[in-house]
Write a protein that binds this DNA or RNA. Structure first.
Lengths: 202, 202
DNA sequence: ATGTGATTTGACCAAACGGTCAAACTCACG
DNA sequence: CGTGAGTTTGACCGTTTGGTCAAATCACAT
């Protein structure tokens, strides 16, 4: 087992390679669908070598989810109470859509986990996510009370942002089956712009 | 193996029980995450007995997906070109949301399949779905050209309906983590009503 | 009741799985 | 170069998995 000391050059390289491979395999097959052999082969390492860096399959999965949770909530965290309300929300939507474009595997990792009941991240949902969401919905409600944006159910407003943006990553196969060669994001960007402008302009 | 003749009373009962159990297990764990033993135990039958009715795990999964594909596309099929455009679309959204409420397991079965690249229903997406969608988007474009509804990208309009409605079934755990005791659909219904009214009113 | 086909099951199998371990190899550093 | 820690692996283990099979039981038409 690698020591707790500062990681060696080799440790850094291999840990990164393993997490990269694990992300590919977990996001494409779900936790139970992924096999350690598959991750090992994708990382270019032997199976025992993998388990030398991560004691078990669950550990790899946890490492990915933990590392990801923060990144995933960042776009919402950045919504600024001092900014122009409508512009802040539109920017949030744009950041979320950008994450679906740039990190589709991460999005599918979450989707897999949540569709199957989130057995491994239930706590994070009820604490980290719930806390942040409650803070930001208060902000949204203030903006609505001030007449800066139209009145809608703030929780469902957030749900709509999540579902509309993550759809392009999670249901990519379906989207491409319909669109053919057309780049999904070329159309998604102006569509969401229009949608939220019409929905939220007071 | 049961004969091809007209199914006996016992065959009907057991096939139904198996599909019901399989739907529970597949939708909660994905294809690879589900085990035949689990389905058998949930159906109250022995494993060999299960495989007497369905020759393999894949066959159970296929039976579910095939049986489901039609049901799933029905709400869109019912969108009537002779109806009032805006009302037709709003009714479609309501039907889709109702399906998320009434058939969350079916929704998650699809979600699991598509998030993981739809390996088993690629063809159905490219034929059945694509054909129906192309037919209905032509209708939407006609309505837009006639000024009956606002101009938006028709494909992305359909994506938005799918993602916004199915979100309540597929991401149920997350939605409930945020909403607490509040019934998700109580808020979803008026929210989507408002959203599509504002988006599509010309 | 009896015979025939439909139904059910305990015992079993080979492959795939997550994980272990001792032995071998490599690297960095004095 | 030598040495000790860090790294790698082939062989192996127990369990789980999808699936098989022969034998036993059941349902029902005659």
């Amino acid at each position: 087992m690698p020591k707790d000391r500062s990681p060696t050059r080799i440790q850094k390289k291999n840990r990164a390679a393993i997490l990269e491979a694990a992300l590919n395999v977990f996001s494409a097959n779900g936790f139970r669908g992924a096999t350690v052999d598959q991750i090992a082969s994708e990382a270019g390492l032997s199976k025992p070598n993998l388990l030398y860096y991560f004691p078990s399959k669950v550990d790899m999965h946890n490492a990915l989810l933990a590392q990801l949770m923060d990144t995933w909530l960042d776009p919402l965290r950045e919504m600024d109470e001092d900014g122009e309300p409508l512009a802040e929300i539109m920017a949030y939507v744009r950041r979320k859509l950008q994450m679906s474009r740039d990190f589709p595997r991460e999005s599918r990792l979450f989707a897999n986990e949540i569709v199957q009941g989130a057995p491994r991240i239930h706590d994070a949902l009820n604490h980290d996510l719930k806390t942040l969401v409650d803070e930001k919905t208060k902000l949204l409600e203030r903006w609505m009370a001030d007449g800066k944006i139209a009145r809608v159910h703030p929780y469902h407003l957030l749900f709509s942002v999540w579902s509309l943006t993550q759809h392009y990553a999670d249901f990519d196969v379906q989207v491409r089956a319909i669109l053919g060669d057309e780049d999904p994001f070329d159309g998604a960007d102006p569509f969401l712009e229009t949608l939220y402008l019409r929905l939220l302009t007071p």
